[in-house]
Design a binder for these strands. Structure first.
Lengths: 393, 393
DNA sequence: CTTGAACACTCAACTTACTTGAATTAATGC
DNA sequence: GCATTAATTCAAGTAAGTTGAGTGTTCAAG
């Protein structure tokens, strides 16, 4: 894939200032809702007048709604504003070699539509055709007009570009080498498009509607085909120079006497291999859920074997990124993830072992199965609510 | 240390817009100098008129100078602008338990003054007192007025805060637990102050005047007392939630049959231990330089032993951060670093092994010995030249 | 050698969006 | 009730960017 991620430093003017301030206001409302204009002014450093103008505009455009008056103490009762949950929507689409998932999400991060379709082929033509169909279905199903769509977030298996990671062909899409997916999807879908890898999408999903809602720096370890790491640092997604940051599956760890890639111990493939050795074939998350519900001993064995190397990797992530918390999630049953987290023995030698911790060092993600598609939508919402003065070239 | 790194999203207005645009212009001039105003306008997306006003202001304030006219093709000859190398200065101060280093650096990253003083004690009072003396000496020595100082960058050994990393007491400062160093130094020095750890400082130093001048995403592995990692991602320094990101020394690696912390194999302490086992006492970089010049076999042995685990760690850094390059530097002789880099065998399984590479995957830092103090100053310059619409709370 | 196209730059008027300060409204507390 | 407090609005003022016309150089074609 030919992803152009180069950004251009760009000058600001009155118009762009307003755009920035809109996002500041939206972001503050999200965090503090319901909240009055005077409070927003104090938080943002803007004048009440400016905030008033902006909230009026945002209310007019259905991003905000008045959430009643609050009579707290003296003075004129506060007119409180909240995000208008259904004021805008984002479409998230996950593309895998064998299937596509779509999710329509509102400003509050609530899912309004989901769908899965199988793919016989994953060429750009077929995928983009299905993407358009999914978009139209989503809009019709939710009774929306295209103008209410902020954009689409496409989540595709990384890594991007021709690089030296041997993926065993497991997660490869065909015919995408010379394609710029952003341009393609923008053309076909007629909205602005963001493309990310699955782990990053999942991480951002937790920020919009999950356990990372009030975090500014955190890491998400994503159990997909392999293992990915999504990083949000100081509110910004970390992509790396070529969009391939977070390839944590290839990190070398040790488990007892054995040494190898983390993916060999802690990933869905590792589970499948371990269960296959016991004569059990599992394909889907539901299979795993069932086995876990039955207390399958091989699965419990896997948890015990995966926990030490994963603990080591988490310690490494903590020391390298110094996040507020590490989140585990992806295509594993919640109960299994909980078991895995309970089995972790996190290293003592970590910058994350601080006395003033309020959160656990490791948490389970809240977005469940649809994480990746949902994450695509979350990226769009996130972009809309995060102020930034950088333009794509 | 009580470092408050919380930033506040802040609204923008005409004044802040101008500030942002000034930094955009300064940054573009740095990258493209000498450059004309029309070109800056095209690059920044601003109107020529706006650029004209801003360059006039920056020239007036001595940040820019006219670098002659360029007659290239038709049209009015371009009035070209360059950074006024000596238009502004930044002070960098490295604080260690036993000594302080100071460097005065100009806008172009050129060093104008350096000094080392020994410390018998590293309490806040003593350190801040010396800091003021160093500032005054630096200004006098370089014949500058305080108004020409953009600010001071203080580099202190991390990690910050009371956390669970056992540092063996080697790099600890006394009496700093309850101190907010930024507030302290701002009070004492009377300028704005940035505080960072050594690896981050070194990384930014390479960006101002070194091998990272045109890089936006890179990692710097810093050989200080231990081993640190400085990360610049998309032009921004990665600090982590509490300013402790980059503790790479504690990462578990393997070297042959042995397994342990990277610091145990690749760090100045590892060298010292290995040489001490051979009855050689080394204290300073000069000692190492001499030994290396003599082709000391124990030192060469160390290189061979350190290279494999370091290669493994670099592969990990590449896969996690996807940088344009990894830079090695710090308190080791350049020739020794070159040997070490030559001995690396970088893993094939890395997102950095791409076909379109123009830079080597690993490079040696160019800032030499004073890196840390110089890095402090570089942080200030970097801040001055990097547009950003976020204010410290 | 003249003329016109190309380009950088300046000037003056215009526009946008924020700020300021006074006026208004609606609660609370004594 | 009346002063106090606080949110909000109104109207005027301001900073900084944009626009479009006009000027000065240079090159190149006729």
């Amino acid at each position: 894939m030919k992803l152009d991620r180069s950004k251009r430093i760009i000058g600001s003017n009155a118009e762009r200032t307003r755009l920035h301030n809109r996002q500041v206001v939206l972001g503050l409302v999200r965090r503090h809702q319901p909240v009055g204009r005077a409070a927003i002014a104090r938080l943002s450093g803007l004048s009440t007048q400016a905030v008033s103008n902006i909230t009026a505009e945002l209310t007019e455009q259905a991003f905000l709604i008045v959430a009643g008056r609050d009579v707290k103490g003296r003075g004129l009762p506060v007119v409180q504003y909240s995000l208008n949950r259904d004021g805008a929507f984002a479409l998230g689409i996950e593309v895998r070699p064998d299937a596509m998932f779509a999710a329509l999400v509102n400003l509050a991060g609530e899912t309004r539509f989901t769908r899965r379709i199988s793919l016989s082929s994953s060429t750009p033509e077929i995928v983009s055709g299905h993407a358009l169909a999914l978009k139209l279905d989503a809009l019709q199903d939710a009774g929306l007009h295209a103008s209410q769509l902020l954009g689409a977030g496409i989540v595709m298996p990384g890594p991007f570009g021709q690089i030296g990671l041997d993926d065993d062909g497991r997660s490869e899409l065909n015919g995408w080498d010379e394609i710029d997916p952003v341009a393609l999807f923008e053309e076909v879908l007629g909205t602005n498009v963001v493309v990310e890898n699955d782990a990053t999408g999942a991480a951002v999903a937790e920020r919009i509607s999950g356990v990372a809602q009030n975090l500014k720096s955190y890491c998400f370890i994503y159990f997909g085909a392999g293992l990915g790491l999504g990083v949000v640092a100081d509110g910004e997604v970390m992509r790396g120079a070529y969009g391939n940051a977070g390839e944590i599956g290839h990190v070398i760890v040790q488990s007892g006497a054995a040494t190898g890639r983390l993916e060999n111990f802690a990933s869905r493939i590792a589970i499948r291999d371990q269960l296959a050795a016991a004569g059990l074939m599992v394909e889907t998350v539901d299979d795993l859920s069932r086995l876990h519900g039955e207390g399958n001993s091989h699965l419990l064995d896997w948890v015990q074997k995966a926990a030490p190397p994963l603990s080591q990797a988490i310690g490494m992530v903590e020391n390298l990124f110094d996040p507020e918390a590490v989140i585990l999630g992806g295509a594993l049953p919640d109960a299994l993830l909980d078991d895995l987290i309970a089995a972790l023995e996190l290293p003592d030698a970590s910058v994350s072992r601080r006395q003033d911790r309020k959160l656990p060092r490791v948490m389970r993600g809240a977005s469940g199965r649809m994480t990746a598609a949902l994450g695509g939508a979350a990226l769009v919402i996130h972009d809309a609510l995060t102020p930034r003065i950088v333009a794509h070239s």
